[in-house]
C-alpha cells in the first residue's frame, strides 16, 4: 500500500488535475480488492463446490450418458467387439465441453458420426458433467478466454495462422472452412460460425476422427493464430460477389451450365422466336 501511495504521489506530480492522485489511489484500491475477491474466496469455495459439481455431474451422467458410456464412464463394448460408447477416462473436461456444448452429445441416434445439433444441457449442467469426467482421470481442462481469445491478434499472427491452417486443416475442412468429405459417410464439419472456444477444444481433444494437435507441438499461440485467421477471413466482405458456398470449382461449373448456358439459351429462344402476327384479313 505504501508503494502504491508513493507511486501515486510521484505520478501526480507532473499532472494538472488535483484529482489525479486520489483517482489513481481509488482505482488501485478497487483493483486489489477485486484481486482479493477473485483469489481468496475462490480457493475456499472451490473445494466444496467442486465436490458438489462432481456429484451433480455424476447424477446427470448416470441419466443421460451412462447407457452408452457405462456407469463409470468406462465405455461399453458391443457384442461384435465394437463400442457403443468409448471410455471417457482421461478425455478431460475440454472434450465434454466440446461434445456437449456443441450439441454433438448426447447422441440422438447411432450413426457414423455425431452431428452438430441443438444443445440439450444448460451451461451449468455442462460444467458439472465436465467436472465429473475430469475427476475420472487427467485430461485437458476447459480452455479459458485467455487461451482462445484471438481478437487482439496482429496481422502478422493472422498471416501465420493462415499458413498453419492451410498446412494442417484445409485438407479436411476446405480452403474456406466449408467442410469436406471423409470415407464412409463421415465428414469434416464446417468451421464458419463456430465459436472460438470450440475450435480450440477440438484442436486439443481431437473429437471423433479429427487428429489431436497437442500444445507441445502446435502451441496455444499457434492455435490462437489459426482462430484469428479463421475469424478474420470469415468477416471478409464478399470481394467478388456471393461465394456460392465456397465449395470450389464444382459449384462454379454447375452454375455455368444451369445459370449461364440456361439464361443464354433462353435469350436465343427469344431472339429466334416468331413475333406476333396480325390476322391475315387485316393485312393491307
Amino acid at each position: 500500500m505504501r508503494f502504491i501511495n508513493s507511486l501515486a504521489g510521484r505520478l501526480s506530480k507532473g499532472r494538472r488535475s488535483p484529482l489525479a492522485a486520489p483517482a489513481l489511489l481509488l482505482s488501485a484500491l478497487l483493483m486489489s480488492a477485486a484481486a482479493v475477491a477473485v483469489f481468496t474466496p475462490a480457493n475456499a469455495v472451490n473445494k466444496t463446490s467442486d465436490a458438489d459439481a462432481i456429484a451433480k455431474g455424476r447424477a446427470l451422467f448416470l441419466v443421460g450418458c451412462s447407457s452408452c458410456h457405462g456407469k463409470n464412464a468406462e465405455g461399453i463394448t458391443s457384442p461384435d467387439g465394437g463400442q457403443y460408447g468409448p471410455s471417457l477416462v482421461g478425455v478431460g473436461a475440454a472434450a465434454v465441453d466440446f461434445q456437449v456444448g456443441t450439441g454433438r452429445m448426447p447422441l440422438a441416434n447411432p450413426g457414423v458420426q455425431a452431428p452438430r445439433k441443438k444443445v440439450v444441457y444448460t451451461e451449468e449442467e455442462i460444467s458439472q458433467l465436465a467436472a465429473f469426467v475430469a475427476s475420472l482421470g487427467p485430461g485437458p481442462a476447459i480452455p479459458t478466454s485467455a487461451d482462445w481469445d484471438a481478437s487482439g491478434a496482429t496481422n502478422e499472427q493472422v498471416v501465420r495462422g493462415g499458413e498453419i491452417f492451410r498446412t494442417n486443416c484445409t485438407a479436411c475442412h476446405n480452403f474456406a472452412g466449408s467442410g469436406g468429405a471423409l470415407p464412409g459417410g463421415k465428414y469434416a464439419p464446417k468451421l464458419t460460425g463456430v465459436p472460438e472456444k470450440y475450435i480450440y477444444e477440438a484442436l486439443v481433444t481431437g473429437p471423433q476422427q479429427m487428429p489431436v494437435f497437442s500444445d507441445a507441438v502446435l502451441t496455444p499461440q499457434d492455435k490462437r493464430d489459426v482462430i484469428a485467421y479463421l475469424k478474420t477471413t470469415e468477416s471478409d466482405p464478399g470481394y467478388g460477389g456471393t461465394s456460392m458456398g465456397a465449395l470450389g470449382p464444382v459449384s462454379e461449373g454447375v452454375f455455368a451450365w444451369v445459370g449461364g448456358i440456361g439464361v443464354l439459351v433462353m435469350f436465343a429462344v427469344w431472339i429466334a422466336a416468331h413475333t406476333a402476327r396480325t390476322k391475315k384479313g387485316s393485312a393491307s
Binding site: 493462415g162 499458413e163 492451410r166 498446412t167 484445409t170 485438407a171 479436411c172 475442412h173 476446405n174 480452403f175 474456406a176 466449408s178 467442410g179 469436406g180 468429405a181 469434416a188 477471413t233 464478399g238 470481394y239 467478388g240 460477389g241 456471393t242 461465394s243 456460392m244 465456397a246 465449395l247 470450389g248 470449382p249 464444382v250 462454379e252 461449373g253 454447375v254 452454375f255 455455368a256 451450365w257 445459370g259
Partner: peptide, 25 residues
C-alpha cells in the same frame, strides 16, 4: 458470383492441399 477466389486458396505450396480440389468442369 465469386469465381475462383484465389486469395482464399493461398499461394501454391506442394505440401498443402484443400478439400474440394477439383478442376474446372
Amino acid at each position: 458470383l465469386s469465381i475462383n477466389p484465389v486469395w482464399k486458396y493461398g499461394p501454391y505450396n506442394p505440401a498443402e492441399v484443400t478439400a474440394g480440389s477439383q478442376p474446372d468442369w
